[in-house]
């Protein structure tokens, strides 16, 4: 019973005051994002070298124009994945939003009512899934799968067919272009998407809520014992994802000017892929929203390169997307994953 025979002053505090790091290296949490950024630049370089007109600034802007809705959905997905969850319902929520929106607009409802209603619907669905996940401890994969069936089913029930949208507000927003120069422009959807990204980035980095999202992803039990509002936060991230999916659906309907129950099939996979390629850990707790933006750009760039190539049949698109997805994942693994494998 004499573990403390040494006088305390004999042990300089420095020996325990030193972190385990040995040498300088980029912050481990930044490495995946840097890797994605490098690959993105590399791919862009390949595009510019190989295809005429690829270096046109509008090519890049078009990636944003075509990917605005995906970007918004991926932002919501980032919140969910950061807590260690997943949301499979986003594609179906888009379908529901467009179908319901188109139906209501067709029935003569004013856009000023329909728009908030759609966003409210998505948020509510998300919150409901979050509540089921948190309070009843149902796996996120399963709960959001049920949400996916529910949303897609509701959309099918409302209307099986594609419904065109001719509402004045919708059409004018859809056709609105912000022009920087001759032939250089973005759509209003891009502005909305970037706004969402900005707000989300601030929330994640600068607010108590955002940090709680990371804490839950790191260790939900600890977060609870630390007295953090785990229940509220976990339910809220699914609410955010639902909101983002609904907003993504609205942007999608701007993009296509139609509502269709089969819109955005498999979009949840694109969103998850974008988030993962952006370096967010699927297990939660690590990653940045900036990475998600890069991930969306990567997917967009892949599509663009294949379009520029022009000779590829549609099924090649899938294969190439798969191969590039593989390349990205493995490269990240090699660059960033070595230490975490062994631990």
């Amino acid at each position: 019973m004499t573990t403390d025979t040494t006088a305390p002053d004999q042990t300089p505090s420095s020996i325990i005051g030193r972190p385990k790091r040995q040498r300088w290296q980029p912050d481990r949490q930044h490495v995946p994002v840097i890797a994605t950024l490098t690959l993105l630049a590399f791919m862009y370089g390949i595009g510019v070298v190989n295809y005429e007109g690829f270096d046109d600034i509008q090519v890049v802007l078009n990636i944003f124009v075509d990917g605005a809705f995906l970007l918004v959905v991926a932002v919501g997905m980032t919140f969910v994945i950061l807590t260690g969850g997943i949301d499979l319902s986003v594609g179906a929520v888009i379908a529901l939003t467009t179908t319901l929106g188109a139906t209501l607009l067709h029935a003569g409802w004013p856009a000023g009512v329909v728009l908030p209603l759609l966003l409210l619907l998505g948020t509510t669905l998300g919150l409901a899934m979050g509540a089921v996940i948190h309070y009843f401890e149902v796996e996120p994969f399963i709960a959001t799968l049920a949400g996916m069936f529910l949303a897609r089913g509701l959309a099918l029930l409302i209307n099986r067919n594609s419904i065109p949208i001719d509402n004045g507000f919708w059409v004018s927003v859809a056709q609105e272009r912000i022009r920087f120069d001759k032939g250089v422009f973005i759509s209003s959807s891009v502005v909305i998407a970037l706004l969402v990204v900005l707000v989300a980035a601030i929330v994640l980095a600068w607010t108590r809520f955002g940090r709680c999202v990371y804490a839950i992803g790191g260790n939900a039990d600890s977060a609870l014992l630390m007295g953090l509002p785990v229940a509220r936060t976990r339910v809220a991230v699914y609410g955010i994802s639902g909101f983002c999916a609904a907003l993504g659906g609205v942007l999608y309907s701007f993009y296509t000017l139609s509502g269709y129950s089969l819109h955005a099939q498999g979009l949840e996979l694109d969103a998850i892929a974008a988030v993962v390629i952006g370096g967010v850990l699927l297990a939660g707790g690590s990653g940045y929203l900036f990475g998600t933006v890069l991930g969306v750009l990567v997917l967009g760039l892949i599509q663009t390169i294949i379009t520029f190539q022009g000779t590829l049949s549609s099924w090649w698109t899938r294969i190439v997307v798969g191969v590039l997805l593989f390349a990205f994942i493995v490269l990240q693994r090699v660059v960033a994953g070595k230490r975490s494998v062994q631990r």
């Binding site: 990371y214 804490a215 992803g217 790191g218 260790n219 600890s222 707790g285």
Partner: peptide, 12 residues
């Protein structure tokens, strides 16, 4: 409370 097993979030 400080618990027996460290109950913090190691990623933060």
């Amino acid at each position: 409370t400080v618990y027996q097993e460290v109950n913090l979030c190691a990623n933060l």
